[in-house]
Design a protein around this nucleic acid. Structure first.
Lengths: 124, 124
DNA sequence: GTACTCACTTGGAAAGTCCAACCTATTGGC
DNA sequence: GCCAATAGGTTGGACTTTCCAAGTGAGTAC
């Protein structure tokens, strides 16, 4: 199933082909604060339905912006994290945040999952 | 008919409520180069259908990002131009262009329509 | 084995988008 | 005045995407 593309030779159009669909950039914004589990993303993004969340994560993974990693211990869990290429979207998110309102918070302090992620290390 | 909103207290979500729909940011990108007529926008954005273009221009106008102005002479024409608030989206477009590809061109030189626009002056 | 959480998938309705055709008003040529 | 062309849309219907609620299967927890 081919996704709908702007199909233009233009950097902006190509960027929007990758992250222009509904919820994509909000998922990236969540992940800029650190890795998150599927259920956490679902809780932190009020309004996103589970099927769309699963679809977007697969698309972002397919574009090399998000990595999926299964943590064995201490808790059996799947976490999603941005790749380097995904983190490079930070200026886009920041520009949107500046335009969209007065306040842009710094990345939040570490939480348990993130702690574990960096303890365990990045995926190979 | 209420448009679909992310309905979140988050600057990024609010920005995407305004310009997150399909084609919106590409229209803004075109207008960053200067005012354009409806038919020019349609020609410069391959793939956009006339009804969506009309809908988006109305939405952007309703959000105060685009102004519609009727030029009386020399040619009877309607042009669309960004408001100050719309121009403030330039950093967003720039960030997307940087992320999306190697080259981001500077705003193109003036053309006839733009010349006339600035000769005539901004809308009251 | 029963209950519970996590990470999804499925089915169907609603909303959004695409496409081609049509419409109205104005201009330009003759 | 008449005809055709252009600008700036609107309309109807097909198609695609998103939403929503419900269900599934795998892995602990007890």
């Amino acid at each position: 199933m081919p996704r709908r593309s702007y199909d233009q030779y233009c950097a902006v159009a190509r960027a929007l082909d990758a992250v222009g669909e509904r919820w994509s950039l909000l998922i990236v914004r969540e992940l800029l604060d650190g890795p998150r589990r599927y259920t956490d993303l679902h809780a932190d993004l009020p309004g996103v339905s589970t099927d769309i969340l699963a679809t977007r994560l697969k698309q972002l993974e397919g574009e090399g912006l998000v990595e999926r990693r299964r943590l064995e211990r201490p808790a059996n869990a799947t976490v999603y994290a941005l790749t380097d290429r995904g983190v490079e979207l930070r200026p886009v998110i920041a520009a949107l945040a500046v335009w969209g309102g007065p306040e842009l918070g710094e990345p939040r302090p570490t939480d348990a999952v993130r702690e574990h992620w960096y303890t365990v290390g990045a995926p190979e």
